[in-house]
Simulated scan of single mutants.
Amino acid sequence: MNNPSREEIKKVLDTAKTIAVVGLSPNVNRTSYMVSEAMQKAGYRIIPVNPAADEVLGEKSYASLLDLPEPVDIVNVFRRSEFLPDLAEDFKRIDCPVFWTQLNVVDEEVFNDLTEKGYTVIMDRCIKVEHAILK
């Protein structure tokens, strides 16, 4: 598994406006909340994907990627690796070019499948850290 170069990741972050965050917790002490809040403050629109929450960070939460009412630029995943195959199947059915998983969230088969289909795939990287490094 080879993630895109830092230059390619910077391009992704520079062109993206909207990020769907799968597994975004409404709990302010959870990493998903802190990272998403930082990205929201950096100017990105965050759309929560969490069937157990009505709203997170002032945005309506959706039960799944398939319920999103509009296209997004990045799907950022805060779920365990075993959920990636199913999430990737939903991801392929929406209009989004980038599948990004947070630290320690990896599935080699999903990475290869999505990359072969032409998607940009970034795994095992924190979007907040990458944004801070590349800005």
Rank of each mutant, 00 (worst) to 15 (best):
L65I: 05
S64L: 13
V22G: 15
Y44H: 12
Q40T: 05
L84E: 06
L66C: 00
G43Y: 14
T18Y: 00
Y62M: 10
L57W: 14
T18M: 02
K92E: 03
N27F: 04
P69K: 11
A20L: 08
S25E: 11
R30P: 11
I47L: 10
V75W: 02
L87N: 00
E89W: 04
S32A: 13
P85S: 12
V22D: 02
M39Q: 15
P48Q: 10
A42F: 06
R45C: 00
R30Q: 08
G23W: 11
R45F: 01
P85A: 15
M39D: 10
Y62I: 06
D67S: 06
D90S: 01
V77D: 04
R30L: 05
D73G: 15
P69H: 14
D67Q: 10
L84M: 01
K60G: 12
K41L: 03
A53R: 14
N50K: 02
A38D: 11
L66A: 08
V35T: 07
D54H: 14
S32P: 04
M34C: 11
G23P: 01
V35D: 04
D54G: 10
T18L: 02
R30M: 11
T18D: 02
R79T: 03
G58L: 07
I47A: 08
E89D: 13
V72Q: 03
N50G: 08
P51H: 01
R79W: 00
G43C: 10
N76C: 03
V28L: 15
A63I: 07
I19F: 09
N29Q: 12
R45I: 00
E59N: 10
F78I: 00
L66H: 00
L24K: 11
V35R: 08
A38G: 04
R45M: 07
N50F: 07
S64G: 14
F78G: 03
A63S: 13
F78W: 07
L24A: 06
A42M: 14
V22I: 09
G43L: 08
V72K: 01
A52L: 10
M34V: 10
K17D: 13
D73V: 09
E55F: 04
G43S: 14
I74N: 05
V56R: 07
I46M: 11
D67F: 02
F83H: 08
L65F: 04
D90A: 15
E59I: 02
R30S: 05
E82G: 01
P26T: 07
L24M: 03
S64P: 13
P71V: 06
P69M: 06
F83T: 09
L87A: 04
D73E: 15
E59Q: 15
R93Y: 01
R45W: 00
V56H: 09
R79D: 01
D86N: 12
A52V: 09
N27T: 06
A38Q: 07
R79A: 02
E89Y: 11
D90R: 00
L24T: 15
